[in-house]
């Protein structure tokens, strides 16, 4: 899923300083699961914003809403009924959702309430870690199911570099060396021979480097 974290309240307060009627829009997708922008976070943030504005002596009217998803047109539609009565929409969806709201609701500014961080997993309750950089050309079959692009701090294809010490990365002793993980996994699988082969230079054109990406399935189009 996509992992995000709430923006600092002070940053949001500065964004909404000119408005006294806003929508705080959560999303029931990824940001609910990672506790950054679901219904609960909408309520907490709205409460904090109202308190802050009351303390400043400037009233704030908030419409709290949590949509099924913000990355699909049909789930944004319910907001049309009341959107025009508000001066801005503060979206707690991921960057994609925020932008999609901005695309579909053109009469008022759409503001980000979260920082979108990465594609990751829930390692344990309250702990999320990155797994994928969506490079568009998966090579996990060659690396024991561990992604060097994501898990190696230098995205090396032929690691580990000289900074790997006791299984940890040189940049932070809390971070596992991605290539140590790859090495151990392949050893476990009896596939260490895979590491003798030089992995070729990557074609980054399938990644963001090739420009904004688009996928079309003709058979699904209406």
């Amino acid at each position: 899923m996509i992992i995000a974290e709430g923006k600092p309240i002070k940053e949001i307060l500065a964004m909404i300083d000119d408005y006294d009627k806003i929508i705080v829009a959560g999303c029931k997708g990824c940001v609910t699961v990672c506790s950054a922008g679901g219904q609960k976070e909408v309520e907490i943030l709205s409460s904090a914003l109202r308190l802050a504005r009351k303390a400043q002596g400037k009233a704030l009217d908030i419409k709290e809403v949590t949509l099924e998803r913000q990355c699909d047109t049909e789930y944004l539609e319910p907001m049309r009924e009341y959107a025009d009565q508000y001066q801005a929409i503060l979206s707690l969806a991921c960057g994609a959702g925020i932008q999609f709201v901005a695309e579909k609701f053109r009469k008022q500014p759409v503001l980000p309430g979260v920082n979108t961080q990465f594609i990751g997993v829930t390692e344990e309750q309250g702990v999320w870690t990155e797994r994928c950089q969506s490079c568009g050309n998966c090579l996990l079959h060659q690396t024991g199911g561990i992604c060097p692009v994501t898990r190696c701090s230098k995205s090396l294809f032929n690691g580990p570099c000289g900074g790997s010490k006791a299984g940890k990365c040189e940049i932070d002793p809390q971070i596992d060396c991605g290539w140590q993980l790859i090495y151990e996994r392949l050893k476990e699988l009896g596939l260490l021979a895979k590491l003798e082969v030089v992995l070729p230079i990557k074609d980054w054109s399938t990644s963001r480097d090739g420009g904004p990406r688009k996928r079309i399935r003709e058979d699904l189009k209406i």
């Binding site: 600092p8 002070k10 308190l51 802050a52 303390a55």
Partner: peptide, 8 residues
């Protein structure tokens, strides 16, 4: 922390 940030 939230109350602090909100100025309460």
């Amino acid at each position: 922390r939230i109350l602090e940030d909100a100025g309460i």
